[in-house]
């Protein structure tokens, strides 16, 4: 792992307010990302993954309160002026948003949206921008790219729109990619192609990547490290092999068990019992306690903090699952 992280997130907290009540969407998220490193972010829907990415990019502060620190190549982003941030966004740090239909402009052709990005973030001339746009669409697997530049987003399939978003994000060769579910709408062959492209850029251009995904197979195949979020907090993080193969937090284990693998077809799948807590009324102790089979008395009253349990491995649980022999050794 790189000794000099390019991105350091420390105690990141983002709070929204609704009707005078505070909604703690992200709490004390901390991680560091090295050059060319790919970090996964998984967790329950509503656990704060997208808000974390938006907070890193300085978008969340427009509608929420952000505290903590985000250092990008040594510069503090949380206090940076919007004007300075704009220079970094798109050029150094690019983001692929979760909902491609709402983040593409429906009134502009796909070609225009790509070339405008290139105009804003590169020094390429008109001709070169068009060539680069076609090249990028080609990279992300849009067939007959040149003849589809003049089309509007609604004329593309869901997965094609998503690929356009990816092309736009990668067009200016960013140093950090924040990718929110970039491949969920894609078939597995295209997904593999795009993940390969991202990995290649991570490797050759030292691009760091924070990848939000629900697909644990994608995490396994692309990420170096992974953080698992629950109710706004990281509950477990570390090396991808260790976390997926020997989860120590009961929620991570529940996620792994929910994957339909080695279960008889059309039978009920395992799913973590209960529902996630409302962020307005979080339990006093561990947020996972009402759904946790391992919950003890302490869990009801105190909140476990994220602790080192092995080198590079952290979990926030009073009763972590046993490590295997391998881990113990």
């Amino acid at each position: 792992m790189a000794d000099h992280p390019i991105l350091e997130v420390e105690n990141l907290c983002t709070t929204f307010s609704r009707g005078g009540t505070a909604l703690p969407a992200v709490r004390d998220v901390s991680f560091a990302l090295g050059k060319g490193q790919v970090q996964g972010l998984v967790g329950e829907s509503g656990s704060g993954k997208s808000v974390t990415l938006r907070s890193i990019l300085g978008l969340a502060r427009h509608y929420g309160e952000v505290s903590g620190s985000v250092r990008w190549q040594g510069q503090e982003l949380t206090t940076m002026s919007e004007r300075q941030l704009r220079k970094i966004r798109g050029r150094e740090i690019a983001m692929i948003f979760q909902e491609p239909m709402t983040s593409l402009n429906p009134l502009l052709t796909v070609g225009t949206q790509l070339t405008e990005t290139l105009k804003a973030h590169t020094d390429l001339g008109r001709r070169a921008r068009r060539d680069r746009a076609i090249e990028m669409l080609d990279h992300v697997g849009i067939p007959a790219a040149a003849s589809r530049l003049g089309e509007y987003p609604h004329q593309f399939s869901g997965g094609m729109r998503q690929r356009v978003m990816i092309a736009i994000a990668l067009a200016a060769s960013p140093k950090l990619l924040l990718a929110d579910e970039p491949t969920t709408a894609l078939d597995v062959t295209i997904q593999a192609q795009i993940l390969d492209l991202i990995l290649k850029l991570a490797d050759e251009m030292s691009m760091g990547v924070v990848l939000v995904t629900h697909d644990l197979g994608v995490v396994a195949q692309t990420c170096d490290t992974v953080s698992v979020m629950y109710a706004g907090r990281v509950v477990e993080q570390g090396d991808v092999r260790q976390v997926l193969q020997t989860p120590r937090h009961p929620y991570t284990e529940g996620l792994m068990r929910s994957v339909p693998q080695d279960v008889p077809p059309r039978t009920q799948l395992y799913s973590v019992p209960g529902t996630p807590p409302s962020l307005f009324s979080l339990p006093k102790g561990c947020a996972f306690a009402p759904r946790c089979q391992a919950a003890g008395k302490a869990c009801q009253t105190a909140r476990p903090s994220l602790q080192d349990i092995a080198p590079g491995r952290q979990t926030a649980c009073f009763n972590p699952l046993p490590a295997t022999q391998e881990d113990a050794a």
């Binding site: 329950e44 829907s45 869901g158 969920t184 629900h214 996620l255 994957v259 339909p260 799913s271």
Partner: peptide, 15 residues
């Protein structure tokens, strides 16, 4: 693509 946007545990619930 009903459950594509859901985490695996919620996916399992919906399924």
């Amino acid at each position: 693509e009903l459950v594509s946007a859901l985490d695996v545990s919620v996916q399992a619930q919906v399924v």
